[in-house]
Design a binder for these strands. Sequence first.
DNA 1: TTGCTCCTCACGTCACGTGAGGTGGC
DNA 2: TTGCTCCTCACGTCACGTGAGGTGGC
Lengths: 279, 279
Amino acid sequence: MGPWIRIGDFARLARTTVRTLRHYEDEGLLRPALRGQSRYRYYDAAQLLTWQRIVMLRELGLSIPDIRAVLTGGGSTKLLRAHREHLAETLAQQANQLEQMDALLREMTDSSQSPSPLPAMRVRSIPATTAYCLRAAVPSLGLPVMNLFETAERKAKSIRIDESPFLLFHSNPETRPAIDVEICIPVDPASPLPGIRLVEGAAAAGSLIYQGEYSQSETLFDRLTQWIRATGSEPAGPRREVYHRFGADVNGYELPARRLTTEAGAYVTELQLPFQRSP
Amino acid sequence: MGPWIRIGDFARLARTTVRTLRHYEDEGLLRPALRGQSRYRYYDAAQLLTWQRIVMLRELGLSIPDIRAVLTGGGSTKLLRAHREHLAETLAQQANQLEQMDALLREMTDSSQSPSPLPAMRVRSIPATTAYCLRAAVPSLGLPVMNLFETAERKAKSIRIDESPFLLFHSNPETRPAIDVEICIPVDPASPLPGIRLVEGAAAAGSLIYQGEYSQSETLFDRLTQWIRATGSEPAGPRREVYHRFGADVNGYELPARRLTTEAGAYVTELQLPFQRSP
DNA sequence: TTGCTCCTCACGTCACGTGAGGTGGC
DNA sequence: TTGCTCCTCACGTCACGTGAGGTGGC
């Protein structure tokens, strides 16, 4: 055969770099047709066919081991089909990223403040949690809820685990103007105790963490709702308020948890709002 | 402040790993609120706010330096907007990859052979080339084209560069049944010579390399055309045949090029078909 | 013979994962 | 006091890019 093509010329023909050709040789993808006594690599024009196949597969996003497998795999489409699914998945994720980015830019542009503070809304999943729960209709969110927490923490004391307690807002028109809430104290799922239940999670929820007094919750929940609607989704499932750092300013509140403060300005609270794609 | 949260607990709260928290400290993204005489890192629940912002930006695909810039950037959206464009670009590329992958799988499934050989069709761009060109209507693709090549190579000899010569098929109904072809010999663009012109490139073209006699071209061009149509595009611009390794089996053919063979079975030819999205 | 191309290491990339080997806090 | 958690290196990842320093072919 021949005449032989030196690596530089072959690289120009193939519109790639010398380094890449050497790398693919190391990886066993494209061995030069001739390596004689001199250590020079000599290629053959027919190797452009193999080269073309390699580039095609690389442009489809396959890794080098996968390309090797496909080239020597005798026409099986199994690996290619698996990779197709992978591509479809990442494509959907990318589309989501773009949507989130647009929502963020809208938030920052629409904000009345300038320069607007960077919001911290994001999408997360919520795992299911085993918790000691107390559900009740309360007239307001202040002291009555505090009392429920106190009771619940005391009951769950022996099997409590170090996760943040939270509050579920069950929207229940029948109890209005009272508010239908459920206090949840995470506990060890292995220890049975009356009042324990598995609180279901959510595949996707808007999440927002803020610092300070609870009076902000109302406004922030509204912004969270708007933000979710703006990305083409609808709230689905009860709102949650998760207390990452909270107060012990009621007399007699026996708190086993370790993240406490006495100043309301230091509270750290997470708002969560499960959602689903709008139909 | 306090009470202090140790790195393991903070990692669980933030649903991340200890390693990631240490890494972000190294990168200056999230410094522990306290590092005293002991080398332990102690965090503060309020740092969940910063953490939330970091995760949000990371989930949008920003690099660590970019996240740092956005966090300290005082609410400027410039970097975010730039990244948005980047996301949109890669999204379009991914969509293309998926389309190509589906086309490939169709090809392999529809193929009459089994196991089907891996085709080597792919999309590439064609750069513009300065070439010495000879256009003519020929009755057939055999000897007349050979003669044209011989003439052209001789004329371009002094300024020829080491790139593959090619043939353009201008579809011209007026010349039928003759074929309107143009022979192109790549030359140094700096050297003027009558007959030289800039042959325009193509942003996107289907490309297929094959080995052997030219009689295969017809069939392969058809497959290339089908493949392009199947991905929702239409041929746009003249077909090309690029001769990477070719013959010198006509007497008197003076060939300056270095990639020659005497066996037709060793010819290496690339078919190119520019295309555009169907309207 | 002069250059130009070629050669072989070997480090760098990016955001962490994963040990190795050791010490301090509840 | 025993463990459990914490600590600091430091290598590995993936597909090459980019020198460094040196030798052989037209």
